[in-house]
């Protein structure tokens, strides 16, 4: 079986054994036996550490969870600085966690029901693999967009009954945040954990509205009679 790897300067083709059950194993086969310089990130081998996300035939996958097919084209994530081959710098994308202030601002004691936990159970399954970020077309036009995973995380904390100051996070996700999303759903499609950032962003929009925010795009729209 042959797989192709986009190494920036060239697209190289490698022969890997059919018994490679995962793409990560195929990559290690190449690194260990054919070309030591092939560079990629990985760690846990079981889909929870988020290190090994790449794109295969244009779609984001975890290398450790993808079964390679003959002719697969493997590429690094987009909207990330490519450091070498498939290894990317995730620091810029990670900064969105800080700008969105996705954490408990003012912890308060609260009795939480299992139903409330279940509401954000999926959101807190996030492994920070950055697949959603790579799939997001908004970043093509606005590199400062906070992006899907940080907004999902903001939603997870603002929905927590232990948060005593929901507005603090909401205030920080207005600019380059919830209103910039086009609700295309790419992020939802590629998430290896089955998280639905599109829905989380929709929810954050309604919370934002409760705090008096509204869609700036909507305000800017002029339907020929000077707007609303």
């Amino acid at each position: 079986m042959k797989i192709k790897i986009n190494r920036q300067e060239t697209i190289e083709e490698f022969e890997v054994p059919f018994k490679s059950t995962t793409l990560l194993k195929a990559l290690y086969h190449i690194k260990n036996n054919i070309d030591n310089t092939l560079t990629f990130s990985s760690n846990c081998r079981s889909g929870v550490c988020g290190a090994c996300a790449v794109r295969v035939n244009g779609k984001e996958v975890l290398a450790c969870s993808h079964t390679p097919q003959d002719g697969d084209l493997v590429e690094p994530l987009v909207y990330h600085e490519i450091q070498r081959d498939l290894k990317v710098n995730k620091q810029k994308a990670r900064k969105t966690l800080k700008s969105s202030t996705a954490w408990l601002h003012q912890p308060q004691k609260a009795t939480i029901s299992q139903e409330q936990v279940a509401l954000t159970e999926k959101q807190s399954d996030c492994i920070l693999c950055n697949s959603c970020y790579s799939s997001c077309p908004v970043l093509e036009v606005n590199p400062n967009f906070i992006g899907p995973f940080a907004l999902t995380r903001a939603y997870r904390y603002t929905s927590d009954p232990r948060e005593g100051d929901v507005k603090a996070t909401i205030d920080n996700i207005q600019t380059n945040g919830v209103w910039d999303c086009t609700l295309c759903g790419n992020c939802t499609e590629v998430c290896p954990q089955g998280i639905d950032p599109k829905m989380d962003i929709t929810m954050l929009r309604s919370t934002s509205a409760q705090f008096g925010y509204s869609d700036p795009n909507f305000q800017a729209m002029d339907f020929g009679f000077g707007g609303f």
């Binding site: 954490w103 936990v117 232990r162």
Partner: peptide
């Protein structure tokens, strides 16, 4: 961990 916001599962009485 509760103060930091770890989403532990809950019993029926919270």
């Amino acid at each position: 961990l509760e103060e930091l916001g770890v989403p532990f599962d809950r019993t029926q009485n919270g």
